[in-house]
């Protein structure tokens, strides 16, 4: 079975560490790539520069508060790109602002998750993401 490719766009190394730790222990075989800012994420997706050989992700986990290009800009570019727009984008953010929530969905985010506080809850949420998107959902075909 082919490993599921995940792109995590997240600038907080703590969160990156926590998430990658979680996914590593996951039941489904996956490859997690990390982009630390918006520009990098776009370059990765378009296989530009050093990402010429980057895999096409099956799922994107996108934080809204990221340097250079913020999360919503990245989301808009993805969803306006006829090639990329099929890739499900899960917004994972600390913001519970209504404004952020509505704007994200208006830009066709596939779901919106608020980063939980506390280790146990964090783990539970990550596990449910993994469970839902990797096993329940039938993802569109890649390349």
């Amino acid at each position: 079975m082919k490993a599921i490719e995940i792109l995590l766009v997240e600038d907080n190394p703590g969160d990156v560490r926590m998430m990658s730790e979680t996914f590593k222990k996951g039941k489904v075989h996956n490859n997690l790539s990390v982009a630390m800012d918006g520009t990098e994420a776009i370059a990765f997706l378009r296989r530009e520069g050093k990402y010429i050989n980057a895999p096409r992700p099956d799922l994107i986990l996108l934080d809204l508060k990221i340097p250079k290009k913020d999360g919503k800009e990245v989301l808009a570019e993805i969803k306006n790109d006829p090639d990329l727009k099929r890739i499900p984008v899960v917004i994972v953010t600390a913001s519970d602002a209504e404004k952020d929530l509505l704007e994200s969905y208006n830009l066709h985010a596939n779901c919106y998750i608020i980063k939980p506080v506390g280790l146990d809850r964090f783990r539970a949420v990550m596990e449910s993401i993994e469970n839902f998107w990797f096993t329940v959902v039938k993802l569109p075909p890649g390349d």
């Binding site: 907080n12 703590g14 969160d15 506080v117």
Partner: peptide, 8 residues
């Protein structure tokens, strides 16, 4: 944001 990381 940072507080969450601290707590976690």
């Amino acid at each position: 944001e940072p507080l969450r990381t601290v707590i976690n």
